[in-house]
C-alpha cells in the first residue's frame, strides 16, 4: 500500500483560527517505518487524525493506493479505517466498561472480515503476544498504564492494518516494556509490509528508525537529529 499526502493543510475553526498543518507533499510506501518528532502542538495528532480519516482536512488530499481517502463517503471511510488503519492513541482511549478482550475485538467486529469465533481467537492471540494472558477479562481501570497501552496496541493490530499510527506508544512504559511494544510494532509491520508511523519523544527510539522526520509548526522537515 502507498500513502500519499498532497497540498494538505488544516485550520481549526473559531475566533482564534490558526493553521496547524501545512504539508506540500509526503509519500510513503509499503514497509516504510517512520519516526515522527515534534513538540507539543506541532500538529502530530492532527496529522494522524487526518491520515486515519477522522478529520477532514481544510485543503488537500490523502491517497491510499492513489484513491483519495476523503473521496469516500463517511461510512465507507469508517469501514476503511476499521479494515486497514491501526491507531494507537497517546492516552490509549480504551472503553472503560469493556474488558481488554472486548476492547480488542471491537475493530474486528466493525471490520466484519472474520467470524465472531475467529475474532475472539485473534484478539486472544494478540493479548497473549503482548504478555496480557492474565488480563484478558480485566477492565482497563484494573490495569497499569503500561498494560492499558499494550491493550491499545493489540486493538490497533487486530485487523492486520496496512498503516499503523502510534502516538507516543512508549510514553507510559518502562524501558523493557517499551522495547517489547516497539519490537512488536516493528516486526508486525515488517512482516506484513505495513507502513508504520510512530510519533514519539523517546530518545531510545531514534536508533531503531532509519526514516525520521520532524514536524515543526505544522510542516514536515527531514530530521536534523542523530
Amino acid at each position: 500500500m502507498n500513502l500519499r499526502i498532497e497540498d494538505l493543510s488544516h485550520t481549526y475553526p473559531g475566533a482564534e483560527a490558526r493553521q496547524v498543518l501545512c504539508i506540500d507533499a509526503w509519500a510513503l510506501k509499503d514497509g516504510d517505518q517512520i519516526l515522527l518528532r515534534g513538540v507539543s502542538g506541532s500538529g502530530k495528532t492532527t496529522l494522524f487524525n487526518i491520515v486515519s480519516g477522522l478529520l477532514h482536512p481544510t485543503t488537500g488530499a490523502v491517497y491510499y493506493d492513489d484513491r483519495p481517502l476523503y473521496g469516500l463517503a463517511e461510512a465507507a471511510r469508517d469501514r476503511y479505517r476499521a479494515q486497514h488503519i491501526g491507531y494507537i492513541f497517546q492516552n490509549h482511549n480504551l472503553i472503560g466498561a469493556l474488558t481488554a478482550l472486548e476492547n480488542v475485538m471491537m475493530p474486528l467486529a466493525f471490520a466484519r472480515t472474520l467470524t465472531p469465533a475467529a475474532q475472539r481467537k485473534r484478539a486472544i492471540e494478540l493479548l497473549e503476544a503482548l504478555e496480557l494472558s492474565d488480563y484478558i477479562h480485566t477492565l482497563p481501570k484494573r490495569m497499569s498504564a503500561g498494560q492499558r497501552l499494550r491493550v491499545a496496541v493489540a486493538r490497533a493490530l487486530a485487523n492486520n492494518p496496512r498503516v499503523l499510527l502510534a502516538d507516543e506508544p512508549t510514553a507510559a512504559l518502562d524501558e523493557h516494556s517499551g522495547e517489547v511494544v516497539i519490537d512488536l510494532l516493528q516486526s508486525t509491520c515488517a512482516d506484513s509490509r505495513a507502513i508504520l508511523i510512530v510519533a514519539s519523544h523517546d530518545p531510545a527510539l531514534i536508533s531503531r528508525f532509519h526514516q525520521r522526520v520532524d514536524l515543526h509548526a505544522g510542516q514536515l522537515h527531514e530530521a536534523q537529529w542523530a
Partner: peptide, 16 residues
C-alpha cells in the same frame, strides 16, 4: 461521548 468517539475511531460508523 468519549466512549462513542472511541467506537468511531476504531471503525464504528455513525449508524453503528
Amino acid at each position: 461521548e468519549r466512549d462513542i468517539a472511541i467506537m468511531r475511531s476504531v471503525g464504528g460508523s455513525r449508524v453503528n
